[in-house]
Simulated assay, not measured.
Amino acid sequence: MSVLLEMAMFPTDHGESKSEHVAQVIKVIRDCGYPYQLTPMATIIETEQISEALEIVQKCYDVLDSLDCNRVYSTIKFDIRKGYKNRLTGKVKSIENKIGEVSK
């Protein structure tokens, strides 16, 4: 199974710039060892089970909680598909096979 998780998470109570806190969230994601893609607006992570994806969400929240964030905003989307793997890159390759290289 392939679980694509697209998420963004940041505190709303620590000023205008969010990069210091977002960097800590991305560090958690990186250290989990799953394939991921950082974008300017969200991060996309691929796991094999929904429980693994939910565990990442919890760990990300926990790191913000440990940084005294009293209010956290998050968007979370899932695309869950049985019988598939490597969709993080495979979906992009599918489009590139049809139209050529896309902006990366």
Score class of each variant (00 low, 15 high):
42 A>G: 00
44 I>V: 15
85 K>Q: 11
39 T>I: 02
56 I>L: 00
7 M>Q: 07
35 P>K: 03
77 K>E: 09
92 V>T: 13
2 S>P: 03
94 S>I: 07
18 K>Q: 13
13 D>A: 06
89 T>M: 10
15 G>C: 04
104 K>G: 02
43 T>R: 02
35 P>A: 09
79 D>Q: 14
25 V>Y: 00
50 I>C: 06
8 A>C: 13
68 D>T: 06
34 Y>P: 01
17 S>E: 14
22 V>D: 02
16 E>A: 15
13 D>W: 03
48 E>N: 13
74 S>C: 15
74 S>I: 08
63 V>M: 05
44 I>S: 05
23 A>G: 14
65 D>H: 15
43 T>Q: 03
63 V>H: 00
70 N>T: 04
55 E>R: 14
63 V>F: 03
2 S>I: 10
41 M>E: 07
80 I>F: 02
30 R>N: 13
53 A>D: 04
33 G>F: 09
102 V>K: 13
78 F>Q: 08
56 I>G: 02
15 G>D: 09
97 N>W: 06
102 V>R: 09
64 L>Q: 09
29 I>V: 14
70 N>I: 00
26 I>F: 05
65 D>R: 15
63 V>N: 01
24 Q>N: 11
77 K>Y: 01
29 I>Y: 01
79 D>E: 15
25 V>T: 04
13 D>I: 00
43 T>S: 12
94 S>R: 15
81 R>C: 06
94 S>V: 04
76 I>C: 10
24 Q>Y: 00
